[in-house]
Amino acid sequence: MIRLLIVDDSALMRRHLQKIFEAEGDFELEMARNGLEAIELARQFDPDVITLDINMPEMDGLTALSMLMAEQPRSVVMFSSLTEQGAIASLEALALGAVDFFPKPGGTISLNIDQVRDSLVAKVRAAASAQLKKAGKLRATPAAPTPSRGEPEPVEKLVEMPTDQGEGLVLIGSSTGGPRTLEEILPKLPASYPWPLVIAQHMPANFTRAFAERMNNTCALTVVEVSKPMPLEPGRAYVGMGGSDICISRRAGRPYAIPKPENKAYLWHPSVSLMVETAMQHFLPSQLIGVMLTGMGYDGADEMAELKRRGGRTLAESKESSVVFGMPAELIRRGGATEIMACTEMAATLIRWGSGKSITSSRVPRHAAHS
């Protein structure tokens, strides 16, 4: 049985969530109306997973989350409104240690919650087996300070990035746990990184803009959301817009990242599979690096494995550092990982590969993939 603590100030929402998880047959449930009750029930009930609303009276979800993680880390799925402020709060929750977040249905709750029940149950089940990462600290305000745009420490010192390595592209796919994992990678890359990076992070609409802005405030790279066709330039990272897919194309010979309406042939969005598939249509395999990070499912596994077969290079996040070892495991199972490593090692590898150094001439990887 999975012990689930549902925390929400809405009695109607609690009833609907109770109905959904009781119908699954393998959940033991407790309910709390606010953050104060959640902390006390967490001590008594010892839940495997907590669903935690962000906006509550007496004690809000972010404050409760920070106290829960300080007392005893647990798998938490946040409930958030589909607003810009809700997106900022959700990203703050992920930084504090939440495993995932779920957009809180608006309108007619009984109708809308039933439409997303399968996705919600899948997220909670994944959270029950997730590997927790060290929590951060609650900020005084949700806005991040603007750092200097100097070269980051300490990875920048490992190699002087060349500026003439030719055209290339880094393709990053991630889902559950991805935002915090990307915070382990992108800030370590220098502003002089010679290849653009394109990121398909599974997120709903209205959330990816806040995520891109948050990352832009912590990186030497310029990080933007792809809300319109954008030329791909070195020293920039492009986050696919939630509620759409991201494709790679060319216009007048220049590579572009282009947002497209969600393609129903793919299960997850922004689709990693579609991003990699379209990139391979416009770049040579030797010009592409695929990076598969933590997440549920198998989005992009077939395409990145095909990229490796054609001569491209791929990284898969190791089980030890993955919050959910789903997407990387699928890539590894297909023999599609050139190297397997913890997310903390990836920036150095991307710098090494981006500098034009071959795989065989560099250090022997600690984790070697087997085709």
Rank of each mutant, 00 (worst) to 15 (best):
I289A: 03
P47Y: 10
L158I: 12
L5G: 04
S358T: 15
M280H: 07
G177R: 08
M304P: 10
M31G: 08
E28W: 04
G173S: 05
M67Q: 15
P152I: 05
H16V: 12
P57Y: 00
M203A: 01
V121I: 15
S361G: 00
E225F: 00
Y193F: 15
L293W: 05
T338N: 06
C219F: 02
G240A: 09
N112D: 12
M296C: 10
G178E: 05
G86F: 04
T294K: 01
L41G: 01
V323M: 11
G168V: 07
V272S: 01
R250C: 10
F211K: 01
Q115M: 14
I113S: 03
H370M: 12
P142M: 01
D302G: 09
S148P: 10
S174G: 11
G150Y: 09
I113G: 03
S75Y: 05
I6H: 00
A95C: 11
K137D: 04
A237G: 00
S244F: 04
S10P: 08
G335P: 03
I199S: 01
S10Y: 02
N55D: 12
Q18T: 15
V155N: 13
T222V: 14
M13S: 13
M31I: 15
S81T: 15
E184W: 07
E277F: 03
E40S: 11
M78L: 10
T344L: 07
F325G: 07
A342Y: 02
P47C: 11
V159D: 00
S192F: 05
E213R: 05
G177N: 03
M230C: 10
M230Q: 14
I248S: 03
R74C: 02
V7M: 00
M78E: 07
P259K: 03
G243P: 02
Q44I: 12
R310C: 11
S249F: 11
G235I: 09
G150K: 13
G35N: 04
E339G: 03
A279G: 09
L284P: 06
Q115T: 13
V226L: 02
A122Q: 14
T63C: 07
M59W: 02
A348N: 07
L62P: 05
K319G: 07
L17A: 05
T338S: 15
G356H: 06
K104M: 02
R180E: 13
I2F: 06
G166F: 07
L4D: 04
A42Y: 00
P187G: 05
T218G: 08
S286L: 06
A93N: 00
K157A: 15
P194E: 08
E339S: 08
G297Q: 11
F27R: 04
F27N: 04
I54V: 12
S249E: 14
L158E: 13
V7T: 03
M275H: 05
P147D: 05
T176K: 00
P73W: 03
P328H: 09
G326D: 06
A191E: 09
S358L: 09
L29D: 03
S322W: 07
I248H: 06
A127H: 10
L169T: 12
S110Q: 14
V323D: 01
Q72L: 02
S81Q: 14
R209L: 09
Q115Y: 09
L96A: 00
L68C: 01
V121E: 10
I88S: 08
P179S: 00
